[in-house]
Structure formats: structure tokens, C-alpha cells
């Protein structure tokens, strides 16, 4: 990807159609392939993990149960008793994003969460859900939230637009956070990997100095493993917080 002395850091995010002519005709790129792979992996993990259904779980079943209970507790602790009905949605969201982030860390793979189109679609899904739930639970009183309690009426023309804009900025910040973190991580990988290739052109001295960028990349993999789970968690917990506000009377 690094051609000669120039570093092409964004080439890794380009979409190409896969599966030959059929893929070309359908505009079927790597992104949906990896999405399907993520879905299949998560489903397989839960299906094969829970298949023994043992009272005393084995390692695999224990892992599946820990994942289930972790998200379930998060949903119910954050949203309240109503959280149980949103738990499947939050579970799906968390593990879809987590699988996407981690699949992207494999060599030669592709990170679908590094595209704003994908993360914004996920965030809009959350946003529309919260608005629908708010309108259903609170009815017309939902709009009263746009006027801060206790503020003077003279300030209303200024405060209400700001509150509305603040509310509308939620899906944007939700999607930008995930997308920016993923892009930044993968760009850093590419930059340090390119340094190694460039240094290889300088003979023995370059070979010695190339240890530096390689060591940094190894550390970056550890950081990206943390960022991947952290961003999935942040996305899920913010969804929970928005839903808690929606179901509050």
C-alpha cells in the first residue's frame, strides 16, 4: 500500500466489489461481507456456547453467559426495569460493533466500523428508536424537555433552538466517536508499518532502526484491542442513557 516514498494511509478504507462479476453487478463490497461475518461469528459464539446448556458451565458456555449477563445488567442498571425489553437491541448493537472492531484488527481484513455511513446508520437507528419511545411513553410532554425548567421566558427563543440542536447532535457525536477512533487507529497502523518498509531501503542501519516502528505497532495492537471494546461499550452505554431518558416519566 505504501508505494515508494509516499504513504497512502487511506487506501485501506476503500471499498472494492468482491466475488467477481456478480459482486460488481450488485455493488457488493467487503463491508457487507465483514458485517455478515460479524453476525455469523456472534451467532455461532452464542449457539455453540449455549448448546451444552450445562448447569455447571464449561469455559465456552461461561464466556457466553458472562457476555449475556454483562449487557443485561448494564441495560437494567442504566435504563431501569424497562431495560429488559431493550436488552436484545443493546446486546445486538454491542456485539455487532465489537465484532466489527475486532475483525478489522486481523491482517488483510476490513473494518466496517471505520465508515461514517455505517456508524451513522447505527446511530440514527438508536436516535429514531429513542424518539419513538419518548413519544410513546411521554406523549406531547416530550417536547417540554426542550425548555429548561426555571429559565425566563425572554430567553426561550435562544434556549429552545440550542436545546434542539443539542438533541439533534446526539447521533452525530455517537457516530463520529466510533468512526474517528477506528480510522485513527488504522491510520496509525499504516503509518508505522510504512516506516518499516521505507527503512528497509536503507540497508543494515535501516533494518536496525525498523525495530522501533515494529515495536510501536505491537503496542498499538494492544491499544486497539482496548479501544475496540471501549468504543463498543461507549456506544451501548450511551444508547442505554438515551433510552433511560426516553422511558423516564
Amino acid at each position: 500500500m505504501a508505494g515508494g516514498s509516499s504513504i497512502d494511509v487511506l487506501g485501506q478504507f476503500e471499498l472494492h466489489s468482491v466475488f467477481g462479476g456478480l459482486g460488481d453487478a450488485l455493488h457488493f463490497s467487503q463491508s457487507p461481507v465483514y458485517m455478515m461475518l460479524a453476525v455469523v461469528l456472534v451467532l455461532a459464539f452464542l449457539y455453540f456456547g449455549m448448546r451444552p446448556a450445562a448447569v455447571v458451565p464449561g469455559r465456552f458456555q461461561a464466556a457466553a453467559e458472562v457476555c449475556y449477563e454483562f449487557i443485561r445488567n448494564m441495560a437494567i442498571d442504566t435504563i431501569g426495569p424497562e431495560g429488559a425489553s431493550f436488552f436484545p437491541f443493546i446486546f445486538t448493537l454491542f456485539f455487532f460493533i465489537l465484532a466489527g472492531n475486532y475483525l478489522g484488527l486481523l491482517p488483510f481484513s476490513y473494518t466496517f466500523t471505520s465508515h461514517i455511513a455505517v456508524t451513522f446508520a447505527l446511530a440514527m437507528m438508536v436516535f429514531v428508536l429513542t424518539v419513538v419511545v419518548s413519544l410513546k411513553v411521554q406523549g406531547i410532554r416530550f417536547f417540554a424537555h426542550f425548555m429548561p425548567a426555571g429559565a425566563s421566558l425572554a430567553l426561550a427563543p435562544l434556549l429552545i433552538p440550542i436545546e434542539i440542536l443539542s438533541f439533534l447532535s446526539r447521533p452525530v457525536s455517537l457516530s463520529i466517536r466510533l468512526f474517528a477512533n477506528m480510522v485513527a487507529g488504522h491510520v496509525m497502523f499504516e503509518i508505522f508499518a510504512s516506516f518499516v518498509i521505507m527503512l528497509a531501503g536503507f540497508g543494515v542501519v535501516g533494518d536496525v532502526f525498523a525495530i522501533g516502528p515494529i515495536a510501536i505497532n505491537v503496542a498499538l495492537v494492544a491499544l486497539e484491542l482496548l479501544v475496540g471494546v471501549l468504543q463498543a461499550y461507549v456506544f451501548a452505554i450511551l444508547t442505554c442513557i438515551y433510552l433511560r431518558e426516553a422511558v423516564a416519566h
Binding site: 443539542s166 447532535s169 457525536s173 463520529i176
Partner: peptide
């Protein structure tokens, strides 16, 4: 560090929405 990053995105995203509207 996480908080600082979040604060940055919150600020930028509201500005983006405002400019777009």
C-alpha cells in the same frame, strides 16, 4: 483522556448539525 476525546466530539458534532441546518 476518554473524557477529553468525548468532549471534543460532542462540541464538533453540535457545530456540524448547526452548520448543516
Amino acid at each position: 483522556a476518554t473524557l477529553a476525546l468525548r468532549a471534543g466530539t460532542e462540541m464538533i458534532s453540535a457545530l456540524i448539525v448547526g452548520v448543516c441546518i
